[in-house]
């Protein structure tokens, strides 16, 4: 019988500093996670935490981890050549086929850009399978901006709005992501989907704003972050009502997501 709790050692290929607090770890790995899936990473001396895949390529996956308190601190002592223990991928994924040949709007708040980065790259690499991509990425301030190169790159092919909560900086707009939703030309789309990923409050207000702009709930997709100690439906931490985020999520259609009462 397979031991579903057993992590395997993987080599860290490189560590890239994204911001003062965020680093991207590239880890050797042959499995091919779907867009939106996550792994359980072993944080040295602490334990495991669910981390979304923020990038992938032949023979590697990437994780962007934020340095917050002691829980993730241990991971920042790791460098290229060290071992990362991990298991996965887990969870469901964004229904990419359903997004194809339609318009797509992606709204992210802060580190919420990480779990949708592979999805956005998928359409960046295959512009022919998507009618148009709109991207609204909000950050607290200029120091918190993630994936700066990507944002520059995305501007070439997508309708990209990068915005800072309440400060100004070159190349950025100012204001919360919700304030930019009304600029999206929904009436000109024949069929579209919206992906919203970020802190719970941001997802809540973004969804509300979308609905106020006439977007049908069933077109909105969100991804939930919850505490998990197992990711396989045993530890109980991620359960909301009868739903286990690790099993049925982390990606939910908003029709379901709005019913989940923590």
């Amino acid at each position: 019988m397979k031991n579903i709790m057993m992590p395997e050692p993987h080599e860290i290929l490189s560590v890239l500093k994204e911001t003062q607090a965020e680093y991207t770890f590239r880890v050797a790995c042959d499995s091919k996670p779907l867009h939106g899936q996550f792994f359980m990473l072993s944080i040295p001396k602490i334990g495991e935490a669910p981390i979304s895949v923020s990038g992938k390529g032949p023979g590697y996956v990437e994780f962007t981890i934020r340095k917050v308190g002691r829980l993730t601190e241990g991971v920042f002592g790791l460098k290229a050549g060290d071992t990362m223990f991990m298991r996965g991928p887990y969870g469901n994924a964004f229904p990419v086929e359903q997004f194809e040949n339609k318009n797509l709007l992606v709204i992210t708040g802060g580190t919420g850009l990480a779990p949708v980065r592979t999805l956005i790259n998928h359409f960046y690499d295959h512009p022919e399978i998507c009618k148009s991509v709109y991207l609204i990425s909000g950050f607290k301030d200029v120091d918190a901006v993630l994936f700066t190169d990507d944002i520059r790159r995305f501007k070439d092919k997508f309708h990209m709005t990068a915005t800072l909560d309440n400060t100004a900086a070159p190349g950025f707009e100012t204001g919360l992501v919700t304030e930019h939703i009304k600029k999206i030309p929904f009436p000109s789309f024949d069929d579209f989907n919206v992906v919203v990923v970020g802190p719970p409050v941001m997802m809540h207000f973004a969804a509300r704003e979308l609905i106020a702009n006439g977007v049908d709930e069933s077109k909105i997709w969100v991804s939930f972050e919850r505490k998990m100690s197992c990711a396989v439906g045993k530890c109980g931490h991620c359960k909301i009502n009868e739903t286990y985020v690790c099993l049925e999520g982390p990606v939910f259609n908003y029709v379901k997501a709005k019913e989940l009462l923590d």
């Binding site: 019988m1 397979k2 709790m5 396989v232 439906g233 045993k234 286990y244 690790c246 099993l247």
Partner: peptide, 14 residues
């Protein structure tokens, strides 16, 4: 919970 949920059994419990 330990044997059925998620479609995989937990080896330590089982």
């Amino acid at each position: 919970i330990f044997l059925e949920n998620g479609g995989h059994g937990d080896i330590y419990y089982e």
